[in-house]
Design a protein around this nucleic acid. Structure first.
Lengths: 263, 263
DNA sequence: TCGTAATTACGAACGCTGTTCTATAGCCGA
DNA sequence: TCGGCTATAGAACAGCGTTCGTAATTACGA
């Protein structure tokens, strides 16, 4: 993970004779914003967002926390830069109007894949208006897909927001549990036991106060993450699609079977 | 806000003769978990979730941070207790199967009202499996409404999760902006300027890289919070309702106009 | 009424955090 | 060769969650 820094002077040792005493010798790679963000993402992937402290990132770069402030205005900006760098990994589709709904779903799955592969980075995304170039690329792609499918501007504008909320919330939900798993333990096995505890808890609730919950314990503690994601995604995309015919109906006789009345 | 504790002995003064020198006299209201949670919510409402520190809550109770740990296992438990106490304010409906969709929406609006009235409490809810009694009451009510409307168990189990994610994300999004507003400034006026900045930013983006975004700046920076919420809510509820006829069709001819094909 | 056990309360301290101040080291143009 | 400038980082500040050990107060049995 951390590349070795070969020429760091050993602290406490006197300067050898014949060598210029350049204190705090400049590291091989001089500090740049890019290097700071890269180091921060390294810590994120290895230890989670909570471990991404200015001190920890600085340590990764072989320096002190104060040095970071020359390249980053503070922790918040660093987190946003991390998010945008992560967003650069999201592969974007070429819009094909005939398949816009499936393409929108595919893009959502791709975003989910990238988000969950970087621990709890979605916590940064929640409630943030995208301004970084790569985050804007993703938003542009989503909007382009919907517009190509005939979704009205106003609807698309709201839908990209709702979709983003859903993706953030899903990734957070997923990684919150993941973060609870002790390091070096099989996550799947851990979740089994973790959800099992809740299953017992729900089953033991008083039936007179919680008749519905106690009657569907199995359905509530089913840890089928992918299934829940697909369910929510389908709900949203179908809902968005239902607004299409109001704007331009019968222009593209793609699939006339669905699309209920909107309003 | 903070009720006066009338008989706290003035520090530094000698004990008056004839009065027993009970040092650290027990406050009128002895420390209880309930009192701790109440004080914490007081701080939350006044200064936001970030200000709810163990020290700040202890100060509100006229004691030190160590004293809280006798009634609360730590900060995380305190936050969950706060959330459950807030959830107790949510007014729950009597299920009326004929109106279940509208009732589900009304309940969602009620949850939104309570959440946003307590600053960023929704941050605690995100990614948390509800276990507190009042949170379970809310989940029970949502599930009861859907079941009364004929939503299959499996669908209802996933829908309550999706709906919760949507509500949490919406409340967080709303309060994140609210938290940015400087204290003592008209929030509406602030948002006008705040979103205005983003409008300019989006409008200034390169048109060749972001053709869709730059073509719908107005739609994207429209700060109609309620409209966006209703849009997402309608998407979800209509989607949930679309699964009803698969289970028990033609039992209640409520509104046959909508409900597209499911699956 | 007294003496003792158990409970509650809390001051002090530890190891963290983000950020700022200040001084220094090295590079660049003159 | 000499300034000026920027990048660097050591030290420090205020605040955080939590723990420890001790003091005070209650409750209880005699």
């Amino acid at each position: 993970m951390a590349t070795a820094r070969p020429d760091k002077p050993a602290p406490g040792l006197p300067t050898p004779p014949g060598r210029r005493p350049r204190r705090a010798a400049p590291p091989r790679r001089p500090l740049t914003q890019e290097a700071v963000v890269e180091a921060a993402i390294g810590v994120l992937d290895a230890e989670g967002l909570e471990a991404v402290t200015m001190r920890r990132v600085a340590q990764e770069l072989g320096t002190g926390p104060a040095s970071l402030y020359a390249h980053v205005s503070g922790k918040e900006e660093l987190r946003e830069l991390m998010l945008d760098r992560v967003a650069a990994e999201i592969r974007l589709p070429e819009p094909d109007p005939a398949r816009w709904q499936e393409q929108l779903k595919e893009l959502a799955r791709e975003i989910r894949r990238v988000y969950t592969s970087h621990r709890d980075i979605a916590l940064v995304s929640m409630g943030l208006i995208p301004t970084g170039p790569h985050l804007l690329d993703v938003a542009e792609a989503q909007l382009a897909l919907m517009r190509a499918g005939g979704v009205p501007k106003k609807i698309a504008g709201m839908a990209v927001d709702t979709l983003g909320m859903f993706l953030d919330a899903d990734a957070i939900e997923g990684t919150v549990y993941y973060a609870k798993a002790p390091a070096g333990e099989d996550p799947h096995e851990f979740f089994e036991a973790y959800f099992g505890q809740f299953r017992e808890y729900f089953a033991a609730l008083p039936k007179d106060r919680y008749p519905t919950i106690t009657g569907m314990v199995e359905e509530l503690t089913d840890a089928d993450d992918d299934g829940r994601f697909e369910f929510g995604l389908d709900l949203l995309v179908r809902g968005i699609a239902s607004y299409v015919k109001d704007a331009d109906r019968a222009e593209d006789g793609d699939r006339a079977e669905d699309a209920g009345s909107a309003g």
